[in-house]
Amino acid sequence: MIGEITFGQYYPGSSVLHRADPRIKLITSFWLIVVIFVCKNFFSLGIIALTAIITSLVSRVPMKMILKSLKPIVIILIFTAILNIFYTQGGATYWEWWKIKVTEKGVNTAIFTMIRIISLVVISSILTYTTTPTALTDGLERVLSPLKVFKIKVHTLAMMMTLALRFIPTLIREIERIMNAQKARGADLETGGILQRAKALVPIFIPLMVSSFRRAYELALAMTCRCYTGGEGRTRMKQMKVSFRDIVLILYCTAATAGIIILNIFFEAVI
C-alpha cells in the first residue's frame, strides 16, 4: 500500500557508514563532491572513482540499489556525452563525416564528464542510503548552526524539514482517500485534455487544502501544549559524538584528496 512507503531512500544496515556521525557524513560527502571537480586528469579521476567504489562496498548497500540511483540520470549522461563528443574539438581526429568530427579531446571530455557525474551521484546516494532522513535533517541543523550568526533561522528550517518528512506519508494517504471518494462519485481523472484534467483536480485539491489547514492548526496546538517555543533553550536527546570511525572517515577523505592533488600536479591536465 502506498501509505506504507518509507520516505527517502534509506537502506537499513549497520555498516561503519551507517553508524558514522551524520554531521561528518554530510561534511565528507560535500567535501568529496567538491574534490570531484578538482580532478584534472584521468589518474586523479581514477582515485575519485575508486573512492566511490570503495565507499559503496564499505556501506554494504547492494550494488543493485546503487545502480538504481543512477537510473534517473541515464538520459542526462547520454545527452552530455553526445554534446561533449561533438562540440569539444581538438587533438587527433578519430572519425569524420561531412561536418561532424570526433576528436581525441571530445572523447576524453565525454568520458571525463560521465565519470564525474556518476561519482557525484554515487557518493550522494551513499549518504542518503546510509543516513535516515531524520538523522540527515538533524545533522544539517547542527552543521549549519554557525549560520545563526547571520540571523539565518537554522532551527526553524530544520523543524520544517522534519515536519515535512513526518507528514508526507500522511498527506499521500489523504490524497489517495480523497481521490477514491471523488472517483466513487463518478469523477473522471484520467481522460480529457490538459484543461479538463486540471479542472478535474479541483475536487481533490480543495478538500486536501482544507484538511491540511486543519492538520496544521491542530499540530500547532499540540506543539504549543508540549511547550514548543522555538529553538531557544531547547536540548536534544540524541547527542552526536565524533568517534574513532568518524576520524577514520575524515582521514580517508584527506588521503583521497591528497592523492588527487599530487596526481594533478604530476600529470598533464586532460580537461
Partner: peptide, 27 residues
C-alpha cells in the same frame, strides 16, 4: 483526538523526546 496531527517527529522515540527537549532537560 486525531492521533496523526499531534506527532511531530519521524521516529517514535524522537517524538516522545520532543516535550522534554523543549523544556531544556539534560540529554
Amino acid at each position: 483526538q486525531n492521533p496523526d496531527n499531534q506527532i511531530v517527529a519521524t521516529i517514535v522515540e524522537d517524538d516522545v523526546a520532543f516535550g522534554p527537549e523543549n523544556l531544556g532537560i539534560e540529554p
